[in-house]
Design a protein around this nucleic acid. Sequence first.
DNA 1: GTGGTCTAGACCACA
DNA 2: GTGGTCTAGACCACC
Lengths: 120, 120, 120, 120
Amino acid sequence: MDFDNGLPIYIQILNLLKIKMATGEIKEGDKLPSVRDMATELKVNPNTISRSYTELEKEDLIYTQRGMGTFVTEDIEKLKALKKKMATKKIHKFILEMKELGFTKEELSRDILELKMEED
Amino acid sequence: MDFDNGLPIYIQILNLLKIKMATGEIKEGDKLPSVRDMATELKVNPNTISRSYTELEKEDLIYTQRGMGTFVTEDIEKLKALKKKMATKKIHKFILEMKELGFTKEELSRDILELKMEED
Amino acid sequence: MDFDNGLPIYIQILNLLKIKMATGEIKEGDKLPSVRDMATELKVNPNTISRSYTELEKEDLIYTQRGMGTFVTEDIEKLKALKKKMATKKIHKFILEMKELGFTKEELSRDILELKMEED
Amino acid sequence: MDFDNGLPIYIQILNLLKIKMATGEIKEGDKLPSVRDMATELKVNPNTISRSYTELEKEDLIYTQRGMGTFVTEDIEKLKALKKKMATKKIHKFILEMKELGFTKEELSRDILELKMEED
DNA sequence: GTGGTCTAGACCACA
DNA sequence: GTGGTCTAGACCACC
């Protein structure tokens, strides 16, 4: 796992966790690794992990129990909403940017399918 | 024109110019506004505009003639390539991210078309 | 009963007991539930209850008889004083904070009455 | 200025700034001291100030201009709303807590006025 | 053991 | 000069 790109490390970790929650790789109620464990595993300072967790907690996606650890929200609806929210946000942004470049949605729809052919 | 979001202002301006070049709103050989003019127009520090121009010059998309000003490249192929390059880059990034969220290209292709219906 | 907010759980429980003593819901000489019973009832670690009791004992509001359990003080004056102490402390803090915000006591006195109208 | 009490320093500073904004001691558009300046002035680590600023920015009460500094929101309505919000929140909390102790609003209203007599 | 806070000092991008 | 991020290491309260 690299953190080369320009984004802050704590954001990259936070996004990683969000994706895992959205795809169900991490489920409701699951215990997240302790701040220290995750820090050593990712070779990052504990403060950095702590910050990722704090941000996620502000979004009500995880919660902490004092002295017990950090857990994914029990509210499965939040996790479902997360996936949908992340997806539509990305799609809208994509279409907006491509429109600026002069693409219509039909072209995009077709290009994406064709791209599939090339890559597979 | 706001520069509220997280991106550096010089990047936002740079992208704006790129899009104008890609869509033909600015054509090969066109003269760009002087650093100072553009700075006052966008209410931005001249250094910021200067940096945008410098970056574009590094990409051979514009060039400066001392005492004359800054101009878009005469090489029309570069501009055509620009559009294609920007588009494919965005598309690849988009598909990659959506795959992480568990979407297939077929779903994306369909979703984009459906999205069209809702919005039009 | 939730313990979501920022306050330490043992403080919340301690305050709860204090209020019950101040309002007479728990009376002088009453036996308190055992640490273990209260812990299971409130779904909390026994250590936490233990700490609440210890703190109350330091304030001479309760006492323990080895092998018998934990009891509210027999000194009825202490309980009366408790109510007054808690009240004046809260009032002073409140007025201090509201003064910082630029409110006079007259305004507060009036606002509280008006607030009553709205809520009843 | 002491930071003795239990609250995190960054919260205390944050609250201080809020009060100054609510009372108009700091006005819309005002430039706040730089992170470093305020840190040396309050004899606190710059990170701590930074955190206070970050939290206030999340509440849209201040904003930062890259490389320029940190400023109070231009939106005067936000500042007015702040005062009202802080006040009602404190009042409600106060009344709630006093009700638990068995006080009616009429008693509170009277007690606050009487308290005035004592203190002046 | 857990997370939360704070300090000290560093580097970076931005204007 | 500005704020943003990160590391290193420490202390604390809580469970």
